[in-house]
């Protein structure tokens, strides 16, 4: 391993107490074959500039907190290897979110929407523990399993142009989580979630760009969840028009 090779990290900086607008600051860091962008940022923080702010925790694509724009693409910085980039890597906070400081974005909007879709099982009736577990077959599990893999990293929101143009849009991760619970055989909360999913700001703001699914590091495929919700909501709507419909 050669230790002389270096790369330049161009990091977007924004210090709210002094800066009117963000600007880029360059740091020269060692190139290490096994390093990901997060390692390079940690090198900067430990050795070059302690003031750089960014979020991270697990370093293994589980916690979902180190999402950022890397050369213009939303990525988990713990999964983006230096070896896949050139000698200059541009790092910015996730697009479409307000910048709190440096690479840290304000995610309150997502948290509010995520809460609104009720991301938990709503059972028809609680059964007493003595009656045992809520059983589920492998096929029933398979129906929604893919949509459970979301780690709320928000790369999908940073990729979604409709979210960029209409911040009211509930957005990919929240809508696909709603779909996940709707598909769960133990759940009966779909009607409640549809109040959000089938509203104007719900699935109907989506024009199926598909960028959310392209950038998803866990292959959740939110675009698929949203299209399936559109079809199901359309069926509901037409059924309600039939005699005896609600």
């Amino acid at each position: 391993m050669s230790n002389d090779r270096t790369i330049t990290l161009e990091v977007m900086r924004y210090r709210p107490e002094t800066d009117a607008a963000p600007s880029f600051q360059s740091y020269v860091v060692p190139y290490v074959e096994e390093w990901v962008v997060l390692d390079a940022l940690n090198y900067v923080k430990d050795n070059l500039d302690t003031t750089v702010s960014y979020r991270w925790s697990c370093h293994m694509a589980v916690c979902g907190s180190c999402g950022m724009m890397i050369d213009g693409e939303p990525k988990l910085s713990c999964k983006a290897f230096l070896r896949d980039y050139g000698s200059k890597i541009r790092v910015e906070p996730l697009s479409h979110f307000p910048i709190e400081r440096d690479l840290v974005v304000v995610i309150d909007d997502f948290i509010e929407k995520f809460t609104r879709i009720r991301p938990y099982i709503i059972a028809q009736s609680e059964k007493p523990v003595s009656e045992g577990e809520y059983l589920q077959t492998p096929a029933q599990l398979h129906k929604y399993k893919q949509f459970t893999l979301c780690i709320n990293c928000l790369l999908c929101y940073a990729a979604c142009p409709q979210y960029a143009h209409n911040p009211e849009f509930v957005g990919p991760a929240a809508l696909s989580m709603a779909h996940r619970y709707n598909l769960d055989s133990r759940d009966s909360g779909r009607d409640l979630r549809q109040e959000v999913s089938a509203s104007h700001e719900g699935v109907w703001e989506c024009s199926f760009v598909g960028a959310c699914s392209d950038v998803c590091p866990k292959h959740v495929d939110p675009a698929a969840a949203i299209q399936q919700t559109k079809i199901a909501s359309t069926m509901d709507y037409y059924k309600a028009l039939l005699p005896g419909g609600k």
Binding site: Y14, P16, E17, D19, A21, P22, G72, E73, S95, H96, P98, I99, E100, V106, A159, P161, A164, H165, S207, V209, G210, A211, D214
Partner: peptide
């Protein structure tokens, strides 16, 4: 407690789709 001053980056309403091949393919489809 320091004052917060979140910075909002504007996204162009007319030329956003030129920023990435993925968006250009989408516009071609549309």
């Amino acid at each position: 407690m320091m004052g917060r001053k979140p910075y909002i980056r504007e996204v162009s309403k007319t030329t956003w789709w030129l920023k990435h091949p993925r968006y250009m393919n989408y516009m071609l489809r549309e």
